[in-house]
Nucleic acid binder design. Structure first.
Lengths: 147, 147
DNA sequence: TTAAAATAGGTGCATATACTCTTATTATGC
DNA sequence: GCATAATAAGAGTATATGCACCTATTTTAA
């Protein structure tokens, strides 16, 4: 295998370059959100639960387009910190997910931090490039997902 | 907090949308590469090691722009499978990383599978959109990374 | 030359991701 | 009404990610 070929793989691999960019952006969000005690991923979960009256694990995982079992694990630390409550659902199979008062408080404090992170990322890229990035990310999620 | 605000967070969060797209694309690559026994991330590591004569953990982590300790953990299963060899380096501090014969063989078999995955992703997005995605990902990595 | 700083690397801990398998419960078809 | 399908969720296992901390070396500077 030629060296040029290998450089091409690194430059052109959609998976690698997505993961690399995700690592970088996640670090920015985690830094800004640190003061709230939340990670970027956790902020998303709280945001999704903030208004929902009817969240269950399966429904939420579908809404966020993530694996159900991944969501279960991601909810664990939020439960442990008392931010998310898990109560009996409509069914004896289902569990209702909701934010606790503390969860709402923490999320409320985190929103301005999230806005700062978002602002910094947009400023770093320039608005036009950021718009382009988001457009392509939305398209990618749409076209890839078998859901 | 208004529902519209929350929907906006989900639609506009750079971190969430990057992670979501990454999950989707990673699944495609992992599926195609499954026959080789490699994950997308592992394929990248083997590609980087394929030609390198002077790889060490730190140098490779810098080349791939990933945390050094993450790389250490990611190399572990490849070592265990006998694909990557770790030998004494120039220093008594450093360790030299290289592909074993088996590692080269497995990587060689995986390349066409990677090409299929890549082709499918490009086809799903359309070449123009894929070009746009990659351009924005490269830009994002450049602008975000403090390295 | 030797104490301090820099470098290379690993571990502990915690979270993020997802496949497979299992259990419990509900819904369906006959 | 009951056997079977489908649904909801958790556990086991494995990889991916990165911070804080630690050890072992090498380099540098006084």
């Amino acid at each position: 295998m030629k060296p040029s070929k290998l450089r091409e793989i690194e430059m052109s691999c959609t998976c690698f370059n997505l993961r690399k960019a995700t690592r970088a952006v996640t670090a920015v969000f985690d830094d800004f959100l640190a003061a709230s005690g939340l990670r970027g991923t956790q902020f998303t979960l709280l945001a999704a639960l903030y208004q929902s009256e009817t969240a269950t694990v399966t429904r939420l995982s579908q809404a966020l387009v993530m694996d159900r079992t991944t969501l279960t694990r991601n909810l664990k630390p939020l439960q442990d910190q008392g931010l998310v409550r898990v109560s009996p659902g409509e069914d004896r199979r289902t569990r209702a997910l909701s934010l606790s008062a503390k969860g709402r408080r923490v999320f409320g404090k985190a929103v301005p931090l999230w806005e700062q992170a978002q602002k910094q990322v947009i400023a770093s890229l320039g608005k036009t490039n950021w718009d382009g990035l988001m457009k392509h990310l939305h398209l990618t999620s749409e076209r890839m997902n078998p859901y």
